[in-house]
Design a protein around this nucleic acid. Structure first.
Lengths: 139, 139
DNA sequence: CCCAATTTAATTGTGTTCAATTTAATTATA
DNA sequence: TATAATTAAATTGAACACAATTAAATTGGG
């Protein structure tokens, strides 16, 4: 068995496994916020901008409406965001953060440093990893 | 909005997005093999060793029986592997590659170089990324 | 203006992922 | 040696991911 065929030597596998491991490490923090990882990512976008269309969310998160629609509906059920159709273009569904959503941001921000400390990498390693991962993303 | 809170600056998000993007790039190859990504990873392990218990598969892939059991049953349905209980320890379920499974290996191996070329990284970048990802995996 | 093409979400169906629980087999211990 | 603890899979239920399809709204060419 030549080494390039070995599971552990496949970069696609290490990437997939590392991604899941990191998300697993974040789970205690996410549970404290009562959010899943995908819900958390949607909230990160809304904490930045306050409002966002489903299409724009999809472009930021690299997810389609098949994934986002149920996630957004769950966040609406938790009253962390509101959903409404754009008046200018009725095809567009907008999400808008609520007061509860904004309140959650304070607790989430306090955790951010600890969450980022989960990854056992120093500053320069994180920068290097970030640059390499960027090369794997579209554009 | 301080930059460490921005979605695109979060390493956990880049990792998650990059992992899914790479798997998306691999999909045409996987379709040619009529395998999902997870099914492919199980077959990579069996192509190496011929047989493997569910527990060992879980340790290699960082997946539990809740994920692996249905994946393995689907591979059994495709007749790429057989399942049987170990005679020494009836708790242990072993998987063993079939002749069809071995035949698929030849086609898969021919694709491996092209699959690995999907990632737009040169040799040294791949080595660096591999090392950084290893630091994020258990042990 | 009219209708075909495009765009945006939602829906449907398949297949993971993972936590929690259950079942069966094995091992350890009183 | 009974039985308590542990181990290995399977099961269950919730929540993604994603391809393919559908429906509604908008845009663009004749």
């Amino acid at each position: 068995m030549s080494s390039e065929f070995k599971l552990e030597n496949r970069l696609c596998f290490r990437l997939y496994a590392a991604s899941r491991e990191v998300i697993k490490q974040l789970r205690p923090f996410l549970e404290a916020l009562d959010l899943t990882y995908t819900q958390y990512l949607v909230m990160v976008v809304l904490w930045e901008g306050g409002t966002c269309s489903v299409k724009q969310l999809g472009q930021r998160l690299y997810l389609d409406s098949g994934t986002l629609t149920p996630v957004i509906k769950n966040l609406e059920k938790k009253e962390l965001l509101r959903r409404f159709r754009s008046a200018e273009d009725e095809r567009v569904v907008m999400t808008e953060i609520t007061d509860s959503g904004k309140a959650l941001q304070r607790r989430a921000n306090e955790m951010t440093a600890d969450m980022q400390a989960c990854m056992a990498l120093d500053k320069s390693e994180k920068a290097a990893l970030g640059d390499l991962l960027n090369k794997l993303l579209p554009q």
